[in-house]
Every structure is written in C-alpha cells, then in structure tokens.
Simulated scan of single mutants.
Amino acid sequence: MATSGKLSTAEDGASASAGSAMPDVVDQVALARLYGEPLFAMPTDLYIPPDALEVFLEAFEGPLDLLLYLIRKQNFNILDIPMLSVTRQYLSYVDEIRSRNLELAAEYLLMAAMLIEIKSRMLLPPKKQAEGEEAEDPRAELVRRLLEYEQMKLAAQGLGAVPQYGRDFIKAQVFIEQALQPRFPDVDMSELQDAWRDILKRAKLVQTHKITREELSVREYMSAILKRLQGRRFVEFEDIFEPEKGSTVLVVTFIALLELAKETLIEITQAEAFAPIYVRLSYTPV
C-alpha cells in the first residue's frame, strides 16, 4: 500500500526529537508504549502533583500514640524518657503535618507545648523538698498518661483480635425442605396451667347471677316456731334457725321470731351477759 511522502513541519520536528531520543542500541527494551509507540526514556516535561506521590507509612491516632511510637521504636525506657531526642523527632513530625492539615495539627501542637515545658523544667534546678523526699520528676505525669494509653491500646488490640461475626466468620445457613404437614411445637405443662388460669379469669368477668322470686309467708313460719316450742320448756336461739335452707329462710324465720315476741306469744331470755339466749312460750298451751 502506498503512503503519502509529504509531512508537515511540525511532524518533521517531532520525528527529529524522537530520533534524538532513541538510543544507539536499536534492540533496547522499551520502558513503555505511548499510543502504540515504544518509549525508551522517561519524559522530562511530565507534571505530577506533589500530593500524588505522598505515602503515609504510619498513621497515628493522636499525640500520645505518636509519642509512644517514637519511644518504643527506639527502645527508650518509658520511665526515663530522653526528652531532647523525643521532642526533636516529635516536632519534625508536627512540622510535616502542619503543612498539610492545620486542623489535625492543633492537638499535636498542644502536646508539643507540653513537651517543651517539660524539657524547660528539667533544665531548671529542682525545687527544694523536705528531707528524705525525692524531687518531683517533670516527666511523671507524661509517663503516667503514656502507660495508661498503652494499656488501653493493648486491650483494644486484644478485643480486635477476637473473631467477630460478619468480619472473620459468618453463620452457616442450610435450607432443609420440610414436610407439607405442619409440625406444631410441644406444649409444656406450665403453659397449659397459664392458659387455664386465663380462662377462669375471663369466666369471672362474664358470669351471670340469676335472681328468682321465692314467696315465703311470715305467718307460716310463726306457726312453725310455735309448734316447735310446744311441749318444750325452752329452746336455744340458734336451734330455731335452719341454715341449710338458705339465707332467705333465715331472714323470714328471724322476722317471724320478732313478730311472735311483739305479740307476746314468746319470751326471749338470757341469764347474764354473754350467756346463751333461750326462747320459750309465754303461755301454757291448752
């Protein structure tokens, strides 16, 4: 296939620059291919944003985490912290993050001020203490906070190592085809008792009371009392009544007794207080 032999001036310049970039060895392995063309050298005019190549090797959760990292990484004794070395490394890290995230650097700056204060207090002569007492170490409060933080951090790591549902394992689920006939769960004896008590409670709420009219004659019961008293000297008050016949009969009997006493046909006597009550006829029958 024939190709055109005419090239523009721009194409001539590009061909010339490409030719000058080509190495002397023709069979050199290309670094990459750009639009199908081999690339034997990195371009010098390629712009890459500075933030694109940043790599954060360590991520800290706060100033105490950073301090603890610096101390443990260099095997410093946490009870005897070399403040000069630790403060210098800490400030270099703070300067690095200040240029990128001022809001994040605020809490780190507060700790930096604390470190500088501790270092300055260590340069001053110690305060006079009472005899037998050691001078207070300016690093004591910082050491206490670091030890407490390390303890909580190790505990959190221990909890994080415990297998968690959804992260380290999932619950196995197996589908089992059931029979078409439903199988109802077994009923416990206590559940039956509770159901029976519930039924009794509802029955008490809907129970009915039937009232019937029973005609009783006071005169008939007056005659019955007189017949019972005939031929007897006296009868105890309780023996006049018949509880087995119901409360209605008791009431009528009591009214009949009162009517007989009103008409002076009987006498109701008592020898003394709290003594038995007796009933007798007030006349002598013929």
Rank of each mutant, 00 (worst) to 15 (best):
M1I: 12
M1H: 11
K6M: 14
D12E: 09
A14V: 14
A16M: 10
A18G: 11
A18Q: 08
A18C: 14
G19M: 12
G19W: 12
S20Y: 15
S20P: 07
Q28Y: 13
L31P: 00
A32T: 10
L34F: 07
E37S: 01
E37Q: 12
P43C: 03
Y47V: 01
D51V: 06
A52H: 11
L53A: 04
V55T: 04
F56M: 08
E58M: 06
E58T: 13
E58R: 11
A59V: 07
L64W: 12
L64D: 08
I71D: 03
R72N: 10
R72K: 15
K73L: 08
Q74E: 13
N77P: 02
L79Q: 09
L84G: 03
S85P: 00
V86N: 01
T87S: 05
Q89A: 05
Y90D: 01
Y93R: 02
R98H: 01
A105H: 15
L110Q: 06
M114N: 06
M114Q: 11
M114F: 10
I116D: 01
E117A: 00
E117P: 00
E117D: 03
K119W: 06
S120A: 09
R121I: 03
K127C: 05
Q129W: 03
A130Q: 07
E134Q: 12
E134W: 05
P138D: 08
E141R: 11
V143W: 05
R144N: 06
R145G: 10
L147M: 10
E150Q: 07
Q151R: 10
M152Q: 12
L154C: 06
L159P: 02
G160S: 15
P163D: 02
G166I: 07
D168I: 03
F169H: 00
I170G: 13
V174C: 02
V174I: 03
E177H: 06
Q178R: 15
L180A: 15
D186L: 04
S190D: 05
S190K: 09
L192M: 09
R197F: 08
I199F: 06
K201D: 15
A203S: 09
L205K: 11
T208E: 06
T208K: 14
T208W: 08
H209A: 08
L216T: 10
R219L: 09
E220P: 03
M222W: 10
A224F: 11
A224P: 04
R228V: 13
G231P: 15
R233Q: 14
F234G: 07
V235M: 13
E236W: 05
F237P: 04
F237M: 15
E238P: 03
D239L: 14
P243F: 00
P243A: 02
E244C: 08
V249M: 14
V249F: 15
L250A: 13
V251A: 10
V251R: 10
T253S: 14
L257V: 01
L257W: 00
E259P: 00
L260M: 02
L260G: 01
A261K: 14
T264M: 07
E267W: 11
A271Y: 03
A271N: 04
A271L: 03
A275I: 01
P276Y: 06
Y278R: 14
V279S: 08
L281V: 12
V286N: 12
